[in-house]
């Protein structure tokens, strides 16, 4: 017997995931056209690996395949990872990363909705810790032709010193260790900088933001997390930049570099592993931005969003528990 309510809004998990995938399309277009077209190949590899991994675990767990495969959540994880990884990462590394995300992080905790950590970010961190050399080889935008990129992805020579470059964040970070170097001197000498951040890469940021706005408009995500994340990142980087512009990059640089925009709209907003209460979302996203900035500026890694997300994932129960919204009627009789 079915109980009330007997009517339902035509919403589905599949629809939510599809919207996220749609929102990623502008960024994929920019990525493929401005930086490395091989990202399309990576997306395909990651998608296949994710679906295959998901199917394998479901089979082992004795669960039906169709509902879990068709909810597209594995595809979202796969796409996010493919966009986070360096585009010339060998195919087996992409597959390994995706499998870590799907099998170890998602299914070992019970599958969709049960994982306390963001699968894509755990996989990203695991890969950067396990293969630091591979994970820090980024092609300079537009310097490799598609065949070379494809060759690198599908295997082959990895003597890359000549053709790879550090990311903008990495260049600034390592450059500042040289005595006398300032942010300005580093940005003016390196050929890899554009207007505000890495050449080519800086155009990804607005593309991600565009997708994020689409998600906001569709009501898939709420304004809390992106606003708190970007606001905090801008505020704290501005604070340091204003005190010492020679040794701290500008807020604009921070917002346009690395995983800031991707994180703000697609990573931090992951509902499963993130905070859920309105106030909790603000605290969660703001703390991620704070930790990410600290890692970027003072830590051992050039980019800190992934580690920050994981650190805050651990705090989610604490945040949620202490930010429960006021329940209807529990204010007393204070009529406005």
């Amino acid at each position: 017997m079915i109980n009330s309510p007997y009517i339902r809004k035509p919403a589905s998990v599949q629809g939510v995931m599809l919207a996220v995938l749609t929102a990623l399309i502008p960024a994929i277009i920019v990525y493929a056209s401005q930086i490395a077209a091989v990202v399309l190949v990576n997306l395909a590899i990651a998608t296949i690996a994710a679906l295959a991994g998901e199917a394998l675990v479901l089979k082992l767990r004795g669960r039906p395949l169709a509902p879990a495969l068709s909810d597209l959540s594995a595809v979202v994880t796969a796409w996010l990872l493919a966009l986070c990884f360096p585009p010339i990462l060998p195919w087996w590394a992409t597959v390994l990363g995706v499998l870590i995300a799907i099998i170890a992080v998602k299914h070992l905790y019970g599958g969709l909705g049960q994982n306390p950590f963001n699968p894509a970010m755990v996989a990203y961190c695991a890969m950067i810790v396990a293969f630091p050399a591979l994970m820090s080889q980024w092609p300079a935008a537009g310097q490799l032709d598609f065949a070379t990129q494809l060759g690198l992805v599908l295997g082959g020579a990895r003597e890359l010193d000549a053709i790879t470059s550090a990311t903008a964040l990495d260049t600034i970070k390592t450059g500042l260790r040289t005595a006398g170097a300032t942010v300005q001197s580093i940005m003016s000498q390196g050929g890899n900088f554009g207007l505000v951040s890495g050449r080519g890469w800086e155009w990804l940021a607005p593309a991600y933001a565009l997708g994020g706005l689409y998600l906001l408009a569709r009501g898939i995500i709420t304004w809390h997390m992106p606003a708190a994340f970007l606001g905090t990142l801008a505020a704290i980087s501005a604070a340091f930049w204003l005190t010492d512009p020679a040794h701290y990059a500008s807020p604009l640089f921070h917002l346009a570099s690395g995983g800031a925009m991707l994180g703000a709209f697609f990573i931090v907003t992951d509902p499963v592993s993130g905070a859920t209460t309105p106030r909790g979302k603000l605290i969660f996203a703001a703390c991620i931005a704070l930790v990410a900035y600290i890692i970027r500026s003072f830590g051992a890694f050039p980019e800190g969003v992934a580690f920050a997300v994981l650190l805050l994932n651990i705090c989610v129960p604490l945040i949620d528990m202490n930010t429960q919204p006021r329940v209807f009627g529990h204010r007393g009789d204070k009529a406005r």
Binding site: P132, A133, S136, Q137, L160, D161, T164, T174
Partner: peptide, 15 residues
């Protein structure tokens, strides 16, 4: 080599 010298280094870890 990156600084114009003779000694090699491994990519990703110049510093």
């Amino acid at each position: 080599k990156r600084d114009g010298g003779t000694f090699t280094y491994r990519s990703g870890a110049t510093i």
